[in-house]
């Protein structure tokens, strides 16, 4: 595709030291590109490394190896001082706006902070006007500027978090679980807002979430992570219609559908076992210890990502084939207990 890359991650690893043992390999060889104007969804369960990948993109954690480029510039080795500029270009919206907003500051002061830090609006007056404009963009009334976070609902607080992220006119916004702590009736409001802002302002998103339904709704492309690696990338349609990696297929089949008739007849792929420790990932394919279709050579070869269709890649030695076999012959649901 010819669209310019806003951010590129190239063979990134982030290892955290763990006392008296091998390091925790939170991210272990991830490459991805976020293109201008798109939403790239990054999904995975806890421990998959999706949030660490997002933090590394802002250099909020330091990469162990690999390169990070933003707007074509290699920011991997940037100093603390230069990073301030990076954080104007890449902004972040966090899961819990309660925790990410300073409770003692007014909403207006929180939104204005990036303007001050990055010297974007000269006079106090210009800042006030810009804050009012930002509040309007996210659907809040101008007088909200004088309120404190605790006076707002969860949905309103997340709108403030989004306004703050927009303040520096970033090239990329990393959305880390932006709706996970909101009430169901409010989640749709925020998803609609994010979509509208993207359309109106030409924003680029990296949308990190565990909720595949929400990710699918907002994303142009999706990358699925498991134990520090990307196992599959493709469009939402490609992933829903024809997942090529067994983990993606299992993840999709685990999502409950709000229709009792569908739920009753559903053949669910229930994964057995536990997520292996990221300090000692399995040899070969990392998913093989839980994969219903694992074969002997899966323990030998670390599977490279192969293209199964244009723009659709999976890191599985039996990409496509394994999922077709699983679907034709799903294993009996494993609850672990004796039958």
């Amino acid at each position: 595709m010819s669209t310019a890359a806003v951010a590129e991650i190239d063979d990134l690893t982030v290892w955290f030291p763990s006392p008296g043992g091998p390091p925790v390999r939170a991210v272990d060889g991830v490459s991805l590109t976020v293109r201008a104007g798109e939403t790239l969804g990054l999904v995975g369960e806890s421990g998959s490394g999706k949030s660490t990948t997002g933090l590394a993109l802002l250099r909020l954690v330091d990469p162990t190896t690999g390169r990070i480029r933003v707007g074509g510039e290699d920011v991997t080795g940037w100093s603390r001082r230069r990073l301030r500029g990076l954080r104007r270009r890449v902004a972040m919206v966090f899961q819990d706006p309660q925790a990410s907003l300073d409770p003692r500051r007014t909403v207006g002061a929180s939104i204005a902070e990036p303007l001050v830090v990055h010297r974007l609006a000269g006079s106090a007056d210009a800042r006030r006007r810009r804050v009012a404009e930002l509040l309007d963009l996210v659907g809040l009334r101008p007088e909200t500027a004088g309120r404190h976070p605790h006076e707002l609902s969860g949905g309103q607080r997340q709108r403030v978090g989004i306004a703050r992220a927009l303040a520096g006119e970033p090239d990329l916004i990393v959305l880390d679980e932006p709706i996970a702590s909101l009430d169901l009736s409010v989640q749709a409001q925020i998803l609609n807002l994010l979509r509208r802002l993207q359309r109106d302002l030409g924003l680029t998103y990296l949308f990190i979430a565990h909720d595949l339904a929400a990710v699918e709704h907002l994303s142009d492309r999706i990358a699925v992570m498991y134990l520090g690696r990307i196992v599959e990338t493709g469009t939402p349609t490609q992933l829903w219609r024809e997942p090529a990696h067994p983990y993606t297929a299992a993840l999709l089949s685990a999502i409950p559908v709000a229709d009792p008739r569908v739920e009753r007849d559903r053949r669910r792929i229930i994964l057995s076992g536990e997520l292996p420790s990221p300090t000692d990932p399995p040899s070969g394919c990392r998913f093989r210890t839980r994969c219903p279709q694992a074969r002997p050579d899966c323990a030998e070869t670390d599977p490279p990502a192969v293209e199964v269709a244009p723009g659709h890649r999976a890191a599985c030695l039996y990409a496509g084939e394994a999922v077709r076999a699983m679907r034709a012959d799903p294993p009996a649901p494993v609850t672990g207990g004796p039958r």
Binding site: S153, Q156, L184, A188, L191, N192, E216, T237
Partner: peptide
């Protein structure tokens, strides 16, 4: 009805969701 309609549905990506205004 509104709660059921507000959920993103597989295969309906890109559509505006039927959000419920306000908060509980």
């Amino acid at each position: 009805r509104a709660l059921l309609a507000a959920r993103p549905r597989p295969g309906a990506a890109g559509e505006e969701l039927a959000a419920i205004p306000g908060a509980p």
